[in-house]
Every structure is written in structure tokens, then in C-alpha cells.
């Protein structure tokens, strides 16, 4: 209660996530080989490396500034579907953050705006076996735990995202490249939902 997240923590979140993505790039690409086109790990790694480069040279006065840069960098360096989806998330997320530190309620508003952006851009819904299977339960869990503070809410969100990711594994994909496999996509873990869980786990570690 009463805890807030400041610019340095947000910046730390992005740097830590870049490291986590680099370490998990082979896993993400392997998951993508099974039901996609074997590039999610290398694309995200390239994108987050570009984000760290941008953070190194940029001077940011507010979280809104920071995430605008993160979003635009991902859109222009990742490609595929992940670039526009993660890019749109951070652009909308940052758009709801003001100049100063943000509390649990404000962070929740920003998370919702980001996830709404993913829905609009990707035209997908829960159950389609996409990253939204992790995002949507995550924001619901965040809301339910927001009164306990940022750390507790993000931890709940990361746990719900992991459950959502796992619950999508047996499903048949209805959106994205995995949908072309039809029934054969069932039983495979979704790469986008996996990178989403990593993002929220890193958030719980750095922002809480």
C-alpha cells in the first residue's frame, strides 16, 4: 500500500528483461519452430538489444517518455507480429503514465491500456492461443490484488500469466501463424505467451 514505481525502476525492468530474453532466446525460438517460423527468440533478442542501446544513449524525464522510446524501438526493430504487438503495448502503456512515480492503481490503468492495444492490433481473444492467453488473466489478477500493493499485484499477475500460458498449450491456435497448423498446433506451448510471462515475472522482480 502506498508504494510507487519510479523511472529508474522502469528502466531497470527493461534492462533486466533484455537479459532474460537473451538467455531464453533459444527456448523461444525452439517453441516457435514447433508451431511458427522459428524466429521469436532471435527477433525479441534483437529488439530488446536495440531497446537497451536506446536507453544507454537517451535521456528520459518521465516513464511516459521512456516507454514511448521502448515501443517505437520494438516496432522498428523486431518485425513479425511481435514487433507491432509489444510495440503497441508499450506505446499505450506509457501513454497512461505521467511524469512522476506511479502507484498500484495507476500501473493497473496503464497495463489495461497496453493490453487493449494488443487486442486491437492483433484482433485476437482469449482462447485463440496467443500472448493474450497470458495477458488477459494477468491484468485480471493484477486488479484483484492491486489493493495489496505493486509487488503483490505484479506477482499475482505473473502467476496468472503462467497459468494462462499453460492453459493455452492444449488449445488449437486460431490466430497467428500457428493457426495454419489447425489441430496440430494443440499440445505446443505458445511462444508469445511465453515471452509475456517472462516480461511480467521480470516486472514482479524489478518493480515490486
Amino acid at each position: 500500500m502506498g508504494d510507487t514505481v519510479d523511472l529508474d525502476q522502469f528502466s531497470d525492468w527493461m534492462r533486466r528483461y533484455a537479459g532474460v530474453i537473451h538467455d531464453n532466446a533459444p527456448l523461444l525460438t525452439e517453441l516457435d519452430s514447433a508451431i511458427g517460423d522459428a524466429d521469436h527468440g532471435s527477433n525479441m533478442d534483437r529488439g530488446m538489444t536495440a531497446v537497451v542501446d536506446a536507453l544507454d544513449v537517451g535521456e528520459f524525464t518521465s516513464p511516459a517518455d521512456l516507454f514511448k522510446k521502448v515501443g517505437m524501438t520494438l516496432v522498428s526493430s523486431v518485425g513479425g507480429a511481435s514487433g507491432p504487438l509489444y510495440g503497441t503495448f508499450f506505446l499505450r502503456f506509457g501513454g497512461k503514465l505521467g511524469a512522476g512515480p506511479v502507484d498500484a492503481e495507476g500501473l493497473g490503468v496503464a497495463l489495461h491500456a497496453g493490453v487493449d492495444g494488443i487486442v486491437q492490433r492483433g484482433k485476437a481473444a482469449v482462447g485463440d492461443k496467443t500472448m493474450l492467453d497470458a495477458w488477459v488473466p494477468a491484468v485480471e489478477a493484477y486488479d484483484a490484488a492491486a489493493s495489496s500493493g505493486v509487488g503483490a499485484a505484479l506477482t499475482a499477475a505473473a502467476e496468472a500469466a503462467a497459468q494462462g500460458r499453460d492453459s493455452a498449450t492444449p488449445l488449437v491456435a486460431h490466430r497467428g501463424r500457428a493457426s495454419y497448423l489447425g489441430e496440430r498446433s494443440a499440445g505446443h506451448q505458445d511462444p508469445g505467451a511465453t515471452s509475456t510471462v517472462l516480461l511480467l515475472e521480470t516486472a514482479a522482480e524489478t518493480l515490486g
Binding site: 517460423d37 524466429d39 534483437r46 516496432v75 522498428s76 526493430s77 523486431v78 518485425g79 513479425g80 514487433g83
Partner: peptide, 11 residues
């Protein structure tokens, strides 16, 4: 031209 099997970006 995008990366191999990856769409080009808006820029």
C-alpha cells in the same frame, strides 16, 4: 526486405 522469414517493419 525483412529479416529471413520476418516481415519488414513500418519504418
Amino acid at each position: 526486405c525483412g529479416e529471413v522469414f520476418t516481415s519488414p517493419v513500418p519504418d
